[in-house]
Design a protein around this nucleic acid. Sequence first.
DNA 1: TCAAAAGTGTTTCACTTACACCCATGG
DNA 2: CCATGGGTGTAAGTGAAACACTTTTGA
Lengths: 236, 236
Amino acid sequence: MSDPATPDEQQRVALAVSTVIFALRPHPTTRRLAVHLPLVRRIRAPHQGRWALPGGPLGASEGLGAAASRTLGETTRLRPRYLEQLYAFGGPDRAPSAAERTVSIVYWAMVRPEEADAGVAGVNVQWFLADELPELAFDHNLIVEYALWRLRNKLEYSRIAAAFLGETFTLAELRGVHEAVLQRPLDPANFRRQMEASGRLVPTDEFRTGGRHRPARLFRHDESIHLADNGPLTRA
Amino acid sequence: MSDPATPDEQQRVALAVSTVIFALRPHPTTRRLAVHLPLVRRIRAPHQGRWALPGGPLGASEGLGAAASRTLGETTRLRPRYLEQLYAFGGPDRAPSAAERTVSIVYWAMVRPEEADAGVAGVNVQWFLADELPELAFDHNLIVEYALWRLRNKLEYSRIAAAFLGETFTLAELRGVHEAVLQRPLDPANFRRQMEASGRLVPTDEFRTGGRHRPARLFRHDESIHLADNGPLTRA
DNA sequence: TCAAAAGTGTTTCACTTACACCCATGG
DNA sequence: CCATGGGTGTAAGTGAAACACTTTTGA
């Protein structure tokens, strides 16, 4: 796809893919929505016993994104609603015993809450609050921080919040996503106008009833607009 | 650095690094500054004879960024003022004869005009206008487009324009960089206030004389502020 | 003294923010 | 009928854009 050198010029390295998976779940104490992510416990050296991002080796006949999606599913049984490449890591000082060079491509993904509960179950896979993580294996703390920065950034100029919601949703639900990600309350009136002005929302004829208050109109996202910038491949 | 799987689980692949190098040079007809980039002509299959991004294989004991910097220097004799990872490409359908899998990490870089002229010389290395490229090898056209998008984006919220300029510069020179990259004229008065308000500029006591007009004050960039977001490694 | 660019002041307009207020529903 | 959140209106504040104007130099 994108390289000028021919194979015989190139060095062979081990290549793996990891993924930062975000989901919104109730905070254990405040019960308000908060950004969570699943981690897997390492069962072998290096960093045995530590929590790490789910991932695995690159398959022989799959793309990088496909590998991220697959290894993510194998370790956590989650299927991402959104998947985007984050960064490639490949310092020469990786292997502890100087055995072999490894480069990892890290992706970040978003899943819906329903999926989140179904997927993660075992004692070796567990949800953590995104901003209260233990010390992770490798430089995974740094990676999560960077992914969070990207998530918060993209919320402002893309309809990425859709990945945390169903097909239709009320403005209050959408606002809840923004508040959970940005960790601050937003004015309902101004949020509504902002969203309406963005042109990304399409009102439906349906309403969400059941609360002890006026029913809220359901919206959907404009399908003609791409979910978000997903790198060069989906931008063209 | 960042991978949960151990070497024996991982597939071995060929890995190479390419770089999109930007420099500002006078437009061949209008003589105004325009974004250019150097390309190298491929001397072997696949895509023999086509222009491509400079690059090469990853060395055994160097980081990804170091490899980009090195291969860039070997092919064009340029030394980047700024270097940032762009994207990793690794579709399974790369090799024409289905021989071996190759993944490339693409970087983008900026160099100063003086360096630009010195570096690129041979018939197999040549400068091109960034928005008037011929059909390149692989998917390099797509990559350049994405890199240009990142460059224009970053101009707005970082002091990245510094990489195109010397240690000190006038506001007109800085504005010239912005105008060349964004391809539209900017109001001098408003540009001045924007830059002053950003807090990234430090005025010096020196002035640029010689024009048939009032001398312009020289500024420098605040060194305490990082050049730009350079991925997770330099953000923490 | 004049052209040209440096640098300042000012008006306008769009958008965000804060908050008051009415609407519709379930209990 | 009233508490609760849905939804609308509006005035103040902030910042960008447009442009008139003054300043300072080289020729």
